[in-house]
Amino acid sequence: MLRQAACNKFRVKNVPSYERPRERLLSNGAFALADAELLAILLRTGTEQETAFQLAQRLLATFQDLRGLAQASHEELIGLRGIGPVKAAELQAAFELGRRLSGMTRSKPRSIRLPQDVAEIMLPEMSHLTQEHFVCLFLNTKNHIIGKQTIFVGSLDSSIVHPREVFKEAIKRSSAAVICLHNHPSGDPTPSREDIQVTQTLRQAGEIVGIPLLDHVIIGDGRFVSLKEQGYV
């Protein structure tokens, strides 16, 4: 009886209108909803003690914000009351789709002319990463991106980022030029000594094989540094 009473308490008709995000989305559009409301739609149900909206608010508070929640591991999610393996998987899938969408280039090829062009494309994809990722963009003669490859994941070191791996992929794609990127999980894109050393090694290798390194861009938290602008390319 107590369990039934608790369930009745949280039926939709007893929930305030601001805690019924699905109805608000249908009447006002998704853009009008707050983060917690959108999250509540994904969660669908709450617990006996709280609505889906309240559960969403608690998740955001636990991980500080939406960005923190998107970075949460499966184990961290299922460790929270109200989140089982299925809900955790659904949340991770939704966040991953958002990351992939934000990193997609436009259907019309975009010409890369400035470091800012690279940053606009890659910041959404790389600024949230909690490990260092070394990524290469392969360009054609018009500086359009014709391919992208993550070369390795881990701390940047000249012994790990071997020119062979970078230019093997460039040759495979008949690239005219290469742009390399990696992220700093600390959020500070200031280049390290290793960053500069790797850049110089790749620049020299590119000159030898005839596929120039146009830039090496370091991604931070909403910021970036171009080693070309720093004079190292």
Rank of each mutant, 00 (worst) to 15 (best):
A32N: 14
L33V: 08
A34L: 13
D35Q: 06
E37P: 04
E37D: 11
E37L: 04
L39W: 11
L39E: 09
A40R: 05
I41H: 08
I41D: 08
I41G: 07
L43K: 02
L43C: 05
L43T: 01
L43V: 04
L43I: 08
R44Q: 14
G46D: 08
G46R: 06
G46I: 11
G46L: 12
T47Y: 00
E48Y: 13
E48R: 13
T51Q: 04
T51D: 02
A52R: 00
A52Y: 01
F53S: 11
F53Y: 13
L55R: 02
A56N: 05
R58L: 03
L59Y: 05
L59R: 05
L59P: 05
L59W: 05
L60V: 08
A61G: 00
A61Y: 00
T62A: 13
T62V: 11
Q64I: 04
Q64V: 08
Q64S: 13
D65F: 12
D65L: 11
L66A: 13
L66T: 09
G68T: 01
G68I: 01
L69I: 10
L69V: 09
A70E: 12
A70V: 09
S73H: 06
S73V: 01
H74C: 01
E75R: 12
I78C: 02
G79N: 14
G79Q: 13
R81N: 09
R81F: 12
G82V: 03
I83D: 00
I83V: 09
I83Y: 00
P85V: 05
P85I: 04
V86G: 00
V86Y: 00
K87Q: 04
K87V: 02
K87W: 02
K87E: 03
A88K: 10
A88D: 07
A89R: 12
A89E: 13
A89Y: 00
E90R: 13
L91G: 07
L91C: 07
F95P: 03
E96N: 15
E96Q: 15
L97N: 13
L97K: 15
G98D: 14
G98T: 15
R99V: 10
R99Y: 15
L101I: 15
L101Y: 15
S102Y: 14
G103L: 03
G103Y: 05
M104K: 15
M104G: 14
T105W: 10
R106M: 07
S107K: 00
S107N: 04
K108Y: 02
R110H: 15
S111W: 06
S111P: 00
S111N: 07
S111L: 12
I112G: 09
I112E: 05
L114Q: 02
L114C: 01
P115S: 02
P115H: 01
Q116I: 05
Q116H: 05
D117M: 01
D117P: 02
D117G: 01
V118M: 08
V118S: 12
V118W: 08
V118T: 12
A119P: 01
A119Q: 03
A119F: 12
E120H: 05
I121Q: 07
L123H: 01
L123T: 02
L123A: 03
L123K: 02
L123P: 00
P124N: 07
E125M: 06
E125A: 13
M126G: 04
M126I: 06
S127I: 03
S127A: 09
L129A: 13
L129W: 02
T130D: 13
T130C: 11
Q131H: 10
Q131F: 09
E132N: 12
H133E: 10
H133W: 05
V135G: 06
V135L: 14
C136G: 14
L137R: 08
